[in-house]
Design a protein around this nucleic acid. Structure first.
Length: 462
RNA sequence: GCGUCGGUGCCCGAGUGGACCAAGGGAACGGCCUGCAAAGCCGUACAAUCGCGGGUUCAAAUCCCGCCCGACGCUCCA
């Protein structure tokens, strides 16, 4: 049985399934106004792995990830760059998805944009106004937080505790009935994009978009709602409040991934200490897979660091997967139907337990070592091991596939390199090792590593 | 201040009451293999102990209490 930690109840619970065999997942996506940083990557990768695993288990996943394409950040950016808000949003959305593609993140089934749902948001707010949950002031429409039962449950705070925080921190808005109340609709300000509404021109508040879109696409009582744990309050708390106030059954289960730290501090736009996905990707061709592996080696609910050293370590581990694939590919036909069952079972048990990817990675590398050992023995002439090799290699291939870190296909053959390899092989045949070593050094300068195996010489890029 | 979560080997990082497993990855050292390498395999030291101090228990890294340190949240933030 698949179990996941639920933020609301603070317990590991069985995966909710409104409909057996299906899971609806809404993961809060990015506000598009700048390069995505590594924190966004961790968020996207967390839900990508969850989805891949569920699908591998035969569960049909409906994955929705929104794009916030209108908010203060976007407006500021547009003003800075002399562009329109839609231009800014479009530009950075493209950058975001290009980066996610390179990280091998599967596309969500739906990718709704806030500005496409204005009408639905207005309707939602009308419901809240009609049942007395919301009120209008000069500055907008607000939700009466104190009228929402269990408002602070997601953050484990009482309304009174939250009120103290709000009093101390939030600039007083004398128009609001209560400092805790938050905007559903923001009245138009000069030089801002606006939409018409029964309460005058304006634009939606942040939280209303996710409630409207998640309920609109996935329907009442959908299964999973996720995002970074910094969204627990206020974003998810307020989304939940809106749904409760509207009398709509909301997410059955809340899942949150932990933050990334830099030098012991949270990586954040506001702290300016972030690294962009782009920078990391450009640094090394294997970084996309290495980053994914690095994230998988740490549990998704644990804060972690990303730095050059651990990236290097992850690349070395990725290289082991590729090395095995090269070796196996050179000597073994693979058969999808022959996969070591013990490895699959151990992997499944690890993943079922709140997405235990660190343990699952352990299973993969254990299997990898067995595969290599068996491969050695097979190459030494023990032909009876053929099936066992196939099973073990097959398990590694299958499982790395599930997690999105499978061995990269070899790059197209390069004639020049092949010629050097061939020349070196001739030199070795002639036992001219000085020449052979000279050619190997030459290849090394081109970033090529050669490996002499029982089945001939293999090479790959460093 | 309040809330939440953490502090495990040289580094990263699992484990969260019990069987010689403190997993797995990286780095190191030795051996086998190799013309030499690379890759791989085998082995070794690495945490005789899991932030510190108490306690519960037949049994604790794992539970309880206190303390120290850190991260995150307390309305921009994945």
């Amino acid at each position: 049985m698949i179990r996941l930690y639920d933020t609301l109840t603070r317990t590991v619970r069985p995966l909710p399934q409104r409909e057996p065999g299906k899971v609806s997942l809404y993961a809060c996506g990015p506000t598009v106004y700048d390069h995505p940083h590594l924190g966004h990557a961790r968020q996207a990768l967390t839900y990508d792995v969850l989805r891949r695993y569920l699908e591998w288990r035969g569960i049909q996943v409906h994955h929705v990830a929104n794009v916030t394409d209108i908010d203060d950040k976007i407006i500021n950016r547009a003003n800075q760059e002399g562009l329109s808000e839609p231009q800014v949003a479009k530009k950075w959305e493209t950058v975001y998805f290009e980066a996610m593609d390179e990280l091998n993140v599967l596309h969500p089934h739906d990718r709704p944009h806030a500005t496409e749902y204005i009408h639905e948001m207005v309707t939602f707010i009308e419901t809240l106004m009609a049942n007395g949950s919301a009120y209008q002031t000069e500055t907008g429409v607000y939700l009466r937080v104190r009228g929402v039962p269990g408002y602070g449950d997601l953050v484990q705070r009482s309304v009174e505790e939250l009120a103290q925080g709000a009093q101390a921190r939030v600039a007083a808005d004398e128009h609001k009935e209560d400092a805790l109340d938050f905007a559903l609709w923001k009245a138009a300000k000069p030089n801002e994009p606006t939409w018409p509404s029964p309460w005058g021109d304006g634009r939606p508040g942040w939280h209303i978009e996710c409630v409207t879109m998640s309920l609109g696409i996935l329907g009442d009582g959908f299964d999973l709602h996720g995002g970074g744990d910094d969204l627990i309050f206020p974003h998810h708390t307020n989304e939940r409040a809106e749904a409760i106030a509207a009398g709509r059954p909301f997410a059955q289960h809340w899942i949150h991934n932990a933050m990334l730290n830099v030098g012991g501090e949270k990586m954040a736009k506001s702290l300016g200490n972030f690294r962009t996905v782009r920078e990391l990707l450009d640094e090394h061709p294997q970084n996309a897979r290495a980053l994914r592996l690095l994230f998988l080696q740490t549990h998704y609910r644990k804060t972690m660091e990303v730095n050059a050293e651990v990236m290097q370590q992850a690349r070395a581990a990725i290289e082991r997967i590729d090395a095995m694939a090269r070796r196996a590919g050179a000597s073994m036909p693979l058969d999808d139907n022959l996969v070591d069952p013990a490895a699959l079972e151990a992997f499944g048990n690890a993943m079922d337990n709140d997405l235990g990817t660190p343990e699952a990675i352990g299973v993969i590398f254990d299997t990898l070592r067995q595969a290599n050992a068996t491969l050695d023995s097979y190459a030494a002439g023990n032909a009876g091991l053929a099936d066992q090799v196939t099973r073990l290699v097959g398990a590694v291939v299958t499982l790395t596939n599930v997690l999105g870190i499978s061995a990269a296909p070899e790059l197209a053959d390069d004639a020049d390199i092949e010629a050097l390899i061939a020349a070196r092989s001739r030199a070795r045949q002639a036992r001219d090792f000085v020449e052979a070593d000279r050619l190997r050094a030459q290849l090394a300068e081109l970033g090529i590593v050669v490996e002499d195996t029982a089945r001939g010489t293999l090479w790959h890029r460093r």
